[in-house]
Write a protein that binds this DNA or RNA. Structure first.
Lengths: 221, 221
DNA sequence: GGGTAAATGCAAACAACTTGGCATTTCGGG
DNA sequence: CCCGAAATGCCAAGTTGTTTGCATTTACCC
């Protein structure tokens, strides 16, 4: 499974040469998190870096009144935490296990030493972060100019990665609503419209992608 | 004048040690742009980096139907172009002179050589980009959870930098509407409300900030 | 296979924003 | 001083999204 959303989930670790990656992950410690468990909170000063070995992680912010603003849903192979690390400021997002998950924790010492030993790693990190910024621009542009069905189409495309038609995206309507940034009611309506167009099939806790090509057409225009 | 908006306008150049900054800018070439002139367009493959010497620059995307999505309004001291540079992909945003401006163009060769010669520069660049990502998260969160007057308050705060009360922000209501992401009508209403609260005073092509503290209160809560 | 919690479907009242159009005001140049 | 372009003010209709509340369905565990 790949990144489940445009942002914050960087392919940084996966983009590393295989030997370097193995070395880096080998130096980390595996930790398990139960569904709903908090991995990090806004304001934390810890500077570790996390790699998602299995399961899923929600990256977002809990605002007043329990309101949640999701920035990304990460899956196995994604990593996060490099932002606060590089920026040298406290965590500015919350991270919560979306399901029972296993993460690998990499301390700042290990990451710094890797960067010092290999200049290519630093460049890769810069490239990854530049990509993250661009993707956040895409997200802003989408959220301003697209209708809810279009935004949902884009979100589902990303959540389904590069799988062929017929794959299931494991997310509730509430999850999708938080990710897209609308109410559950609005998301439900958008879902019905996409279903009417025959491009998806809603399930209980998941959505089946029927026609990725058509989904792409809807998201773009 | 400082950064006129949260994103893409990085304080990167200004954060450099003075000698390094002078050296870098000295190697660039100054270029003048008339108001409305295009500095760069989406898809351009040129990898130069720009520093705003005087004037202002709009960073955004022109969509179908001439619709504009603004990401930032830059002023003197800001820089841009490091994203496509670091990410090694074509430009993904348009840049247009918001007024008659003088920019300094720095080629990729100069920036790379600076990075190679001083590791601290690279770290500064990483830090700057991390900050940009966080600020883009703020922008997304704001656009989802705040009312238009609140978003306007935040935008005006950023546009006015750290100046004391009484400064004027040089931007039309249309500019602000594009930046905040609403119609001119909605922005006008929000403006009237902030005026009623006594925190700002609308002008013709500018806005006078009367009470920064109160503006901050409105934007936050 | 019944009970239970989670997820989904649905409806009406309400609020916010957009669109299109037009009137008015402001500023700068001839 | 007048004129024209740019900026602002304003209105009404239409669209979209939210909120609140409740009914229904689904999956899972005992």
């Amino acid at each position: 499974m790949t990144a489940l959303a445009p942002m914050a989930g960087t392919g940084f670790v996966m983009a590393l040469p295989e030997t370097v990656r193995g070395d880096l992950l080998g130096r980390g410690q595996a930790r398990s998190f139960a569904k709903g468990q908090i991995i990090q909170q806004r304001g934390d000063t810890a500077k570790e870096f996390w790699y998602v070995e299995s399961g899923s992680v929600q990256i977002g912010r809990y605002g007043v009144g329990g309101r949640l603003t999701l920035f990304a849903l990460l899956g196995a192979g994604d990593a996060f935490g490099e932002l606060a690390f590089m920026g040298e400021f406290p965590r500015t997002v919350d991270a919560i296990a979306g399901s029972d998950s296993v993460l690998i924790r990499i301390g700042e010492r290990e990451l710094w030493s890797l960067m010092d030993s290999d200049a290519a790693v630093t460049r890769l990190l810069l490239k990854t972060m530049a990509l993250t910024v661009q993707e956040s621009f895409d997200l802003i542009e989408s959220s301003r100019n697209l209708s809810v069905p279009q935004k949902l189409a884009q979100a589902l495309l990303q959540l389904s990665g590069n799988q062929e038609d017929g794959t299931q995206v494991m997310a509730t309507q509430q999850d999708l609503a938080d990710l897209v940034g609308v109410s559950r009611v609005s998301l439900g309506k958008a879902m019905t419209r996409l279903q009417g167009a025959g491009v998806i099939e809603p399930g209980y806790g998941f959505v089946t992608i029927r026609d990725r090509a058509a989904l792409r057409d809807m998201g773009g225009g």
